[in-house]
Write a protein that binds this DNA or RNA. Structure first.
Length: 475
DNA sequence: TATATGTTGAA
DNA sequence: TCAACATAT
């Protein structure tokens, strides 16, 4: 039996390939609303998972592998559900790919125990990383805390550490079990999202192929411009496992003469992003705090993060009075996705200008992102909040207006998501005057950027060097 | 994956 | 006047 999780694909799926070597296989997927709620899985991602399960059922059927979808109450019900199936179908061994989040690891251990008690064997594989997490260590045997050092070691070891692409399994003889997705039919989800983010491995592969063309020409120049669709947009497919990072890297390497660094500028730049994803997954593997709402830099939890509901709501709703922020938040809520440059700008604004707890922003993103992934989302937020490993230095605070002028120079992106500002010229659109704002019924800026950034710098500075600030020192 | 501010020197 | 550069946060 193969237990599917966030690896909803038949190509490059080590657990599936290995299981099918040994004998007749049935596939199972267990889901629960409560677990989705607890992990803040967005409606967009729920739809993509449901769609992907339907698509997976068809792909597996071509291999004569039946898929059983079981709906349980929560994580705790997973071992029992699997145990029931193991008894019902006289299963002798369970195959699955590992996950590294704390809850997922606990769940896997519980499953392993209960399966072994039944006398069945367990075979676990790695599919979510390009190299096994825990295998990229410094000479002192410690995990890397700085991306550039991690990248160097990752590249140096890639040749002998990289997980090979799992070969495509041949179909098995027809067995006397048929697919059963009836419990999946009862799962409520909003199928509208599937229009924007169609499910299916074929869709993911198409997008990868199309992107490689664009990447090699324009990625370096356009990847930071939210008004241009210059990024791969593959993250939703990576998040549900319709595609693996190994497949992405293999494709990129083929287009770059096997070079992990250098060669084609655009492709090398994208490979760098794939390594960031890998880095954050390794960081999550080594640091359980990532899965437990705690900062990697412990001392930053002493910062007096504000818990201002009204201000937080304005950020969520895109009513901050800063066009680039507001347009970005509209993009998130309406499309389930936000451009990476904008994720940094909005996160930096929430944490450094509004000084609101990064965890509120992290959760809001998870609740709306179709590509929500704990490791990547938490990594990005802790980078922006300066609470993580290799985080942005606390004094390097983005100015949303400067960023807007630099990365959305003619206001194309702002105009798309804030049509009320469409009439403003390229100069004014980044920061409408009070008169323009009033006329267009657009909110005034909710904070003074330099004052708020200055306060945050001071709070961080006092955290690391606790001294009386100059301003209140006498003499 | 920064920004604000101040200095310098060419025009 | 302003680009180029240095520097502090």
């Amino acid at each position: 039996m193969v237990w599917f999780k966030r690896d909803l694909r038949v190509y490059d799926n080590p657990a599936l390939t290995e299981a099918m070597k040994e004998g007749p296989v049935i596939a199972v997927y267990v889901l629960s609303h409560e677990q989705w709620d607890k992990h803040d899985v967005s409606p967009a991602q729920r739809a993509l998972i449901v769609g992907q399960l339907h698509s997976l059922e068809k792909k597996l059927a071509e291999l004569n592998v039946p898929l059983l979808v079981k709906v349980g109450d929560c994580f705790d019900s997973v071992p029992g559900t699997l145990a029931r199936l193991i008894k019902e179908y006289s299963v002798t061994s369970l195959y699955f790919n590992r996950e590294y989040e704390v809850n997922e690891r606990r769940c896997e251990s519980a499953v392993e125990q209960s399966v072994k008690l039944l006398g069945a064997e367990v075979f676990a594989f790695h599919d979510a990383c390009m190299v096994v997490p825990g295998s990229v260590l410094s000479l002192k045997g410690e995990p890397y805390k700085v991306f550039s050092a991690f990248k160097k070691a990752f590249i140096a070891g890639y040749g002998f550490k990289a997980r090979p692409v799992a070969y495509f399994p041949g179909s098995q003889p027809v067995i006397d079990v048929s697919s059963d997705l009836t419990e999946l039919q009862c799962i409520g989800y909003d199928s509208e999202w599937l229009q924007q983010w169609p499910a299916g491995e074929a869709e993911a592969h198409d997008r990868l192929e199309r992107f490689m063309d664009v990447a090699s020409r324009d990625y370096k120049a356009t990847r930071d411009i939210p008004g241009v669709p210059g990024t791969s947009q593959l993250s939703p497919y990576l998040a549900v496992g319709a595609l693996s990072t190994t497949q992405c890297m293999t494709t990129a390497l083929m287009a770059n003469e096997g070079l992990l660094d250098g060669g084609n500028e655009g492709i090398a730049c994208w490979i760098n992003e794939l390594i960031w994803r890998e880095f954050y997954r390794h960081v999550l593997f080594h640091n359980p705090e990532v899965s437990m709402n705690q900062p990697l830099k412990k001392e930053t939890d002493l910062l007096p993060w504000r818990n201002d509901q009204a201000d937080f709501q304005r950020w969520c709703d895109g009513n901050t009075g800063f066009p680039i922020i507001d347009a970005a938040m509209k993009q998130l809520v309406t499309t389930g996705w936000m451009h990476n440059r904008l994720r940094m700008i909005t996160a930096m604004f929430l944490t450094k200008n509004l000084f609101i707890d990064w965890r509120l922003g992290e959760q809001f993103f998870m609740r709306h992102l179709v590509d929500g992934d704990l490791a990547s989302n938490n990594g990005g937020w802790q980078w922006c909040a300066s609470t993580g490993v290799d985080a942005a230095p606390y004094f390097r605070i983005f100015n949303p207006v400067s960023q807007s002028k630099r990365f959305d120079p003619d206001g194309t992106f702002i105009r798309k998501f804030l049509p009320q500002l469409a009439s403003l010229n390229a100069k004014d659109i980044h920061q409408p005057s009070l008169a323009q704002a009033k006329k267009l019924n657009y909110p005034e800026p909710m904070v003074n950027l330099s004052e708020s950034a200055g306060r945050t710098k001071l709070l961080f500075k006092n955290l690391t060097q606790p001294t009386v600030p100059d301003e209140v020192r006498v003499g």
